[in-house]
Design a binder for these strands. Structure first.
Length: 334
DNA sequence: TGTATTTGACCGGT
DNA sequence: ACCGGTCAAATACA
């Protein structure tokens, strides 16, 4: 009945198989499937490990060791999750504990047609689990060239204007974690304060992947898992519509740094020349990425739900291609 | 009919 | 307990 509709539309599961499984309402099946998925991931991580060893046979210092280390972390995480899942005493799997939307209708109060949310509807609800950085932008328009889907609006306690919440349209089809919050500016209601959280890991088909800035403009290269750093490079200066300006870059935990000396007094970091923002805009994701590196690195351990790892490597992008493309066939033999 | 938005409820962090 | 972020049923729209 309703459940089917929700599942079909919203697609809460990360994959089709997950969604279909949810209809079964069986914690056991959920666990089994989760185990399979985790095994898959573990397998993939193992392959990466092998490939790394082939690519960097002898040494394991410097960046290679970092890659290896992170790979080990991934493997460990998978292993741990598997242990938790398969241990007999494991309670209903945490992620799925709430996946019985219909089964526990103890109250069964269907009387009011106003939606009554059963306990357990929050299927794997995670709040602020990601250590994503946020980028605040002041814009005249909400349109930034990206496709967003509004998922909520809130009146904010200390604010005159409500805040709207958007997620990337490709959240479910491409597992893109980018979200943004839009609120009218207190000072200038004709402007929007847009806070971007997370980065696009999706490839928006409406966008052409050609706008890579020249390599000399890029910061040292960053491999990003979960964050879109590399991919976003290829996209239009998304968050940076011609009208917008970056105001502030901050991590979730703290303001990492203020790249412009002397601007600390202002709440936001204003770019010097808004007219040329379109040109400077592509650097925004890089700035953010670079600024976030420390935080993200330090958060790798604590974040199991999403792999947000990025690290700096000192070789050119095409060298990365060399490294990874030669592995591609092995990784994806079909 | 499928997709997007609205909006009250739920839930986590503080 | 409060606030803010997210979920998801209901609704609007194409």
């Amino acid at each position: 009945m309703k459940t089917e509709k929700i599942l079909g539309r919203v697609g809460r599961g990360r994959s089709g198989s997950m969604a279909s499984l949810e209809q079964e309402n069986s914690p056991l099946i959920h666990r089994r499937t989760a185990t399979q998925v985790l095994n898959k991931g573990k397998e993939a991580a193992n392959k990466i490990k092998c490939l790394l060893q082939e690519s960097f046979p002898s040494e394991d210092h410097g960046k290679n060791s970092m890659i290896g280390f992170l790979n080990e972390e991934i493997l460990d995480s998978f292993s741990e999750a598997l242990i938790i899942l398969t241990s007999e005493g494991a309670p209903e799997t945490p992620l799925d504990q709430a996946s019985t939307p219909c089964s526990d209708e103890q109250g069964s109060d269907h009387s009011s047609k106003k939606r009554k949310v059963q306990s357990g509807r929050r299927n794997g609800y995670r709040r602020r689990a990601h250590p994503y950085a946020s980028t605040r932008v002041l814009s005249k328009t909400m349109d930034d060239g990206r496709t967003w889907r509004k998922y909520g609006q809130k009146d904010i306690f200390s604010s005159k204007h409500p805040r709207s919440y958007f997620r990337c349209t490709h959240k479910y089809d491409q597992d893109c974690q980018a979200t943004r919050q839009v609120q009218r500016s207190e000072d200038d209601p004709s402007m929007y304060v847009i806070t971007y959280i997370g980065e696009h890991t999706c490839r928006d088909p409406t966008k052409s992947p050609h706008l890579l800035p020249p390599s000399h403009q890029r910061p040292p290269f960053i491999i990003s898992f979960g964050l879109e750093t590399a991919q976003d490079d290829q996209q239009e200066p998304q968050s940076n519509s011609p009208h917008s300006s970056i105001l502030k870059q901050e991590s979730d935990e703290e303001v990492v740094s203020d790249p412009s000396p002397g601007s600390s007094a202002s709440e936001f970091l204003m770019l010097p020349d808004l007219g040329t923002f379109e040109q400077s805009a592509p650097m925004a994701p890089y700035m953010e990425t670079v600024l976030d590196q420390c935080d993200v690195m330090s958060d790798v351990h604590s974040s199991n739900s999403c792999l947000d790892m990025e690290f700096e490597i000192p070789f050119e992008l095409n060298e990365i291609d060399d490294v990874f493309s030669l592995d591609h066939d092995k990784l994806f033999p079909d």
